[in-house]
């Protein structure tokens, strides 16, 4: 193995992260983030939480506000599918494929802006809307929530990255895949209804998604569940996230090889 490879990967990761930060500043100003994006996401949390009032089950509101507040970072992290496709429309994809490094290193970090923005959005939702719907925070539970939200955003980002790799050749599908992915998670991972509401095969599918485990851990924190149980779920979430990251690295490799062979990597939207 070439000893220069790790340092090369690190250089790519560093430059890719710089692009992510620059993208964050290009996509939002503090005004558009605060009064546009954040208002939209907080409205979504309230919208779904209030549905609990229709079913005469007021206690559902805490279940719903936790799930929907955490869902916010999962939605943003899934935007990696769309932003990975931007390289194609910008015309930089062929250059990345031609570069003497693994294609995946760039994509792993170039959309981290969604993790940053998603984590902050989710935390704002948990700490501002949560108390309005009956959540009570302590210093310890708040600290645990910060960590769990970050892990959720990162884990879901890895899942989104794998999807981005799968649709690398089909950039027109980016929005469909991204939307279906986050709505699928919203349905299956216990955000709106408990995971056991769904048939057995779908329950099994939910176990492969980081959000399912991190959400269970967060609910455990707020309900005073044993620390070991919370840790166990959080670790399961991390393991599934790492699994999706491995899938993404492999599939990006396939996409690059296939693109070189067929000449299919070009400008496109």
């Amino acid at each position: 193995m070439n000893p220069r490879l790790p340092s090369k990967a690190l250089t790519v990761l560093r430059h890719g992260s710089a692009i992510a930060v620059a993208d964050l500043a290009a996509v939002y100003t503090w005004k558009t983030w605060l009064f546009g994006w954040l208002v939209r996401m907080l409205s979504q949390v309230v919208f779904f939480t209030l549905v609990g009032r229709l079913t005469d089950a007021g206690h559902n509101e805490q279940f719903l506000v936790i799930g929907n507040a955490l869902m916010v970072c999962a939605i943003e992290a899934t935007m990696v599918v769309a932003s990975s496709a931007w390289e194609r429309s910008l015309g930089t994809m062929p250059l990345l494929v031609a570069a003497p490094t693994h294609l995946a290193w760039t994509f792993i970090v170039r959309s981290l802006q969604w993790v940053i923005s998603g984590t902050v959005s989710s935390l704002v939702a948990l700490f501002t809307l949560g108390p309005a719907f009956g959540l009570r925070w302590t210093l310890n539970s708040a600290a645990a929530a910060v960590l769990l939200v970050l892990l959720t955003a990162l884990g879901t980002y890895c899942f989104g990255l794998a999807l981005a790799a799968l649709v690398a050749d089909q950039p027109a599908l980016r929005n469909i895949v991204s939307n279906v992915a986050y709505l699928g998670m919203m349905a299956l991972c216990g955000v709106q209804v408990p995971v056991h509401y769904w048939p057995q095969p779908l329950q099994l599918l939910a176990q492969f998604l980081p959000l399912t485990h991190e959400l269970e851990a967060l609910r455990g924190v707020l309900q005073g569940a044993p620390v070991l149980r919370i840790l166990g779920r959080a670790v399961l979430g991390v393991i599934t996230g790492v699994g999706w990251l491995a899938v993404a690295v492999v599939v990006f490799g396939w996409a690059a090889r296939r693109g070189r062979r067929t000449g299919a990597i070009e400008f496109g939207t």
């Binding site: 549905v51 609990g52 079913t55 709505l183 349905a187 709106q192 209804v193």
Partner: peptide, 10 residues
């Protein structure tokens, strides 16, 4: 998916 989610929630 939205329909499924809302049907399940309600």
């Amino acid at each position: 998916l939205y329909t499924l989610i809302l049907l399940a929630m309600t």
